[in-house]
Design a protein around this nucleic acid. Sequence first.
DNA 1: GACTGTGAATAGGTTCACAGCC
DNA 2: GGCTGTGAACCTATTCACAGTC
Lengths: 243, 243
Amino acid sequence: MATGRTHRPATRSRGIPEATVARLPLYLRALTGLSERSVPTVSSEELAAAAGVNSAKLRKDFSYLGSYGTRGVGYDVEYLVYQISRELGLTQDWPVVIVGIGNLGAALANYGGFASRGFRVAALIDADPAMAGKPVAGIPVQHSDELEKIIADNGVSIGVIATPAGAAQPVCDRLVAAGVTSILNFAPTVLTVPDGVDVRKVDLSIELQILAFHEQRKAGEHAAAAADERKGPDGELPAVMPA
Amino acid sequence: MATGRTHRPATRSRGIPEATVARLPLYLRALTGLSERSVPTVSSEELAAAAGVNSAKLRKDFSYLGSYGTRGVGYDVEYLVYQISRELGLTQDWPVVIVGIGNLGAALANYGGFASRGFRVAALIDADPAMAGKPVAGIPVQHSDELEKIIADNGVSIGVIATPAGAAQPVCDRLVAAGVTSILNFAPTVLTVPDGVDVRKVDLSIELQILAFHEQRKAGEHAAAAADERKGPDGELPAVMPA
DNA sequence: GACTGTGAATAGGTTCACAGCC
DNA sequence: GGCTGTGAACCTATTCACAGTC
């Protein structure tokens, strides 16, 4: 009870679960593919397969958006594309800035998947003066001195951070101060932001580590029983605390 | 431990929840930072802050690994680093191949976060013959004809796919046939794999779309009180999106 | 007194299974 | 008959709150 409010409990109007929101882009991608092949309608079963989920989950997800299907028939592809796009806010244009134009930043600038949704790379920003003016993906890199002006001039509310870890928090602070309220962070560091600002992170090495965990388990399936319990096989390193 | 009354011994030793596994790399990163600054011990509160989670969750997570802390004191940093590394399988060397050396593949090849964990880029593979031999991040790119041989020679079990969407499934099939059992997929497509093969995906544009959803909702907060949805299912025209 | 470890309570997400409609 | 939409059952994850330990 003493714990105040950290997280606003979902808004009153539309309670779309977070897990559902995270899958909408998946459905949208699958639907876009069908649309390009001029498929008029699709069943929950087919669409679920194309999106890589199961059909019960898909139907449940769609039920949060409304009743957009037809029983006995399925879903109208074009109509669903529109509804999901609207729900995700992709019917409007989102200018984004990418800060940190190293290898990853350049890859992001070149990534086609942004433009094809409602995202437009409004500017590339880097702290290295030597980068200034150099075009990447056809867009000239601007120096980070310009950051605040760029954000303001373009009405940017989404920023992508692809800087080294050490630069991420200061960059984040400046973005937020300049008016950015959503941040996609590729730097391997935890960002602190004020309430009302959303941060999502993508950490490339974390994904690999999760794979390694499962991979290890597969490998150890033969000899699983052996080195299992806390009597760990300390091959090396500090074996403090016996527990 | 926990020889209490619980009548379900089943989930004892190897039952680490997936959500916990996904956070272990986060803790590890925070701990590594502390270790570099020679901090000897850390409380759940401090470590949780550094990792960006709350302390109850962290303690619960650690309780699945075992009792590695000391009441009244906290956790020994070095010891925890070791235990988590071992749990994640990072005390061994994981050779990985990266397939598709475009902008993103090159960024991944250059990404320092891999090497610093147990990951070693064993080879870079691309289908473009013009790329063959060109060094990227100091590693010469090899042609995809060599894929099977490379996997076998290096004992690779983890593959990273950074190809265009269309090439991803064929590449995936070849990786799996050659013995790869874990795949990190950056291509915006759903991969189909046999049982026993793990796939994790990272889709850059999906993350942005999720941000857009929340961003849109923030923007509408002023006018939120207005029409509270539930508008007629066919009130809007499915005006198809621009390509 | 400080802090971990963990049952119990709660919240969130998934799957089942079937009613309702085409 | 085929397929959606959804309450109910189930499962997973998070948070609470406090007993246990140093």
